[in-house]
Amino acid sequence: MAVVSRGFGARRREQDPALPPGQYLTTDFPVLSAGPTPHLHAGEWELEVRTETGARRTWSWEELLALPQEDVRTDIHCVTRWSKLGTRWRGVAVDTLLEGVETTAAFTTVHCYGGYTTNVPLADLVDGKAWIATEFEGAPLPDEHGGPARLLVPHLYFWKSAKWVRGLVLTETDEPGFWERNGYHLYGDPWREQRYW
């Protein structure tokens, strides 16, 4: 049973059923990062997919933009308690990057420019559940939100949607990434409030 705090509740906002437990709605777009925002040039940017056998595929910025682009409208939920509803993104489905890739791996480690990593089960990145996003609300993705490209995996807490993404490495075991080694949950389902472990 939760303890009632005397006199609390006068300034409450409307509760939206689209909000997972413990989240509140925000209209701005706060930033969660472990360090400074890197400023990357599309010219030196490259995206890589590497399998557990070491097989590699890479895309330059132009090659990524030449792939089929999808428009995504989705809610996003940050572990620091804010959610945004109905955000609009554009990018390439992870399915498109994985077409024809041979793997028996069950997990991925997402690597980023700046050294940040996060772990996501492969099943959570396929079947239209995840994208490499390059646009937010009709404009190029701003640097502080992960530009030029971030992973978008909106059904998990937003730290899994790694900013400044540079590659997906398919792995046989679940290797905790940066935030996961620093106290955040291995999986991060907002509806089950998997914030910390």
């Binding site: 939760a2 009632v4 609390f8 509740g9 509760q15 413990g22 308690r81």
Partner: peptide
């Protein structure tokens, strides 16, 4: 830490 407040009617808010 996370700080949680609960109103008389069960409404809750949490902030860090």
């Amino acid at each position: 830490l996370d700080l949680r407040l609960t109103a008389e009617d069960g409404y809750q808010a949490v902030r860090s």
